[in-house]
Simulated assay, not measured.
Amino acid sequence: MIPALAAFFPRKLAGIAESLVLEDDPRPHVPGAALLDRDRLRQVLGAFSASYAEPDAQAVATQWSKWHFSQFLPPVLIANIAGDWLLPTAIDRIGIVLSPDSRTLAIRLPGEGARLPVSGVQRFSPLVEDHLAPLIAAISRASGLPAKTLWSNAGNVAETIASECAAFLGEAHPGVADARALLAARLWPDGRRNELFEPVRYREGRRRRRICCLRYRMASLALCKSCPLDKVPPRGRHGGEEQPGTAE
């Protein structure tokens, strides 16, 4: 674990921080900025698609993004929420350690970070503007996957981490309250659309995503456990239908 983060992680969540490393990590890595190049990103997604018997380009992209967000967002958000700590996660400053099949294994940071300079929902602005927004735009360009699906994938992870933090810090904790406020706000304070608005909803005791991730388009994958759909659409495996599960 990066030394500066040790105080922020409860014992049961400490392993989550292992996906963040510093520049002395010896493993080969891809510069984050390279993933903003459409051709280079398509190479990464193409290598990842070899894991599936019948890869669908958009389903491959959604699965790759979900894996990346699940490695990247939990430690970054826990540090932010629990420790008021801002990590240097701008996509053009980091490196990404990939597995042999091109999954994100670790994020190589240029430094240990510093105390957050702001509070409120703005505490999450650097993460959203400097990492999520450019990477999501790049994945959407490279794959044709709607950006709203990718934002939903990120929001799904963010909501899970906010709930985990609430479980050990309490809902009244300032960082938890700010995270809840971000996910409940349609707009940023400056009036911009908040792409992370309400990624999941709870209905009749069941947690459901607001927007389907489209992973079902590959025959080898079932609906995810928080899917807004009850069954795979008849034409879902080969595209052509309107994206389901997008109710406002």
Rank of each mutant, 00 (worst) to 15 (best):
A177C: 08
D24H: 12
P234G: 07
Q63L: 14
A158W: 02
P26C: 12
C213Q: 06
A106G: 05
F72C: 09
G191R: 12
L35P: 11
P10R: 10
M218P: 06
A158K: 05
S125Q: 15
K66P: 03
E198R: 15
L223T: 06
V76I: 09
R237A: 00
K225N: 08
L196H: 10
I94Y: 04
D92V: 02
T149Q: 13
P174N: 02
G83F: 03
G32Y: 05
A184Y: 13
L169F: 09
F9L: 13
T62L: 00
D92K: 03
R40F: 08
D130V: 04
Y52E: 01
V21W: 11
P75Q: 06
P3M: 06
K148E: 13
A158M: 14
L87N: 06
G83I: 05
Q43C: 03
Q43H: 05
P126V: 08
L105Q: 14
A34I: 00
I161Q: 08
S125P: 04
C224K: 03
W85K: 02
L41M: 07
L22T: 14
G83V: 01
A138Q: 12
R103F: 09
L86T: 10
A106W: 02
A133K: 14
G170S: 05
E241A: 04
G95L: 01
R237S: 06
Q243F: 07
R186D: 05
A4Q: 11
V97T: 02
F72D: 04
D230K: 09
P26Y: 15
T104K: 04
S99L: 02
D37V: 08
S102K: 05
L109V: 12
A138C: 03
P233V: 07
V128Y: 07
L13C: 00
I96D: 08
A34F: 10
P26N: 07
L182T: 13
V60Y: 04
E23P: 04
S65C: 11
V232P: 15
D178F: 03
E23L: 12
Y216P: 15
A114F: 07
P74W: 09
L36N: 05
